[in-house]
């Protein structure tokens, strides 16, 4: 073989080796979650998987992202909508994790992400964490997001949940507050007024007491 041929052959071998190495690294990457493969078209599944992998690299819980995609599939959403939803959720989860801190549970992070996506400012979440540094924020976050979703002004809802947390309100009482505000709104009370009125009854009636008025928390 001539020197030129030898260099060409080496170059080709090198290129082939590089290609094989790249292929090997590509093949050894984590396979797409089979739920995505089963429920989405291949292109969408791959797009979603890219977002999931990037999120995982940033320490974001990935299961909520996968189930978001599956939810979209079940609701027959357009592929681009599914991918966009997964991206938005990923960004919200990352922000939630940063605000709540590294010891937050996946549930807290998911709930906080939902709250952020509904417009609750990060500052509110940070202050909530300060009110309950060790306790679970899951229920306060669920209640906060619910109130905002029902058109309670964000400032009012934030104030209410922060105030309740400051009082050491139990989760069950917070859920009851939410249920009552919902009922009041259904009966025509303005969301803000309902929230403030019900908030003022917190902290009362904790001691063993005579029977309450009928209705309780069922309506």
């Amino acid at each position: 073989m001539s020197a030129r041929s030898w260099r060409a052959a080496c170059g080709a071998a090198f290129a082939l080796a590089a290609a094989l190495a790249w292929l090997a690294s590509a093949v050894s990457a984590a396979p797409i979650d089979k739920r995505l493969v089963e429920r989405l078209d291949p292109t969408t599944a791959e797009e979603v998987w890219k977002v999931v992998e990037a999120a995982e690299a940033q320490g974001v819980p990935t299961d909520p992202l996968i189930v978001t995609a599956l939810e979209g599939a079940s609701k027959h959403a357009r592929p681009e909508r599914i991918v966009a939803a997964v991206r938005e959720r990923s960004a919200a989860l990352l922000a939630a994790k940063e605000v709540l801190g590294p010891e937050s549970t996946p549930g807290e992070i998911a709930a906080a992400a939902g709250a952020l996506m509904s417009g609750v400012p990060r500052d509110t979440l940070a202050r909530l964490r300060q009110e309950r540094p060790k306790g679970s924020l899951l229920v306060p976050l669920v209640v906060l997001a619910d109130l905002v979703t029902r058109q309670v002004p964000i400032e009012t809802a934030s104030m209410a949940v922060l105030h309740a947390s400051r009082l050491g309100t139990r989760d069950a009482d917070l859920l009851r507050l939410r249920s009552r505000v919902e009922g009041d709104i259904r009966r025509g009370v303005s969301p803000a007024a309902a929230t403030i009125a019900r908030l003022q009854t917190l902290g009362l009636g904790d001691a063993p007491a005579p029977p309450t008025s009928p209705g309780g928390s069922h309506r």
Binding site: A172, P208, P211, T212, G216, S217
Partner: peptide, 25 residues
């Protein structure tokens, strides 16, 4: 939280709500 409210929670299956009533009495 009133007794009746804890009872409501307990009736829904929340045994820990009943635990609060136990604590109380």
């Amino acid at each position: 939280m009133t007794d009746a409210a804890l009872v409501a929670q307990a009736r829904a299956g929340d045994v820990e709500a009943f635990g609060h009533l136990v604590d109380r009495y």
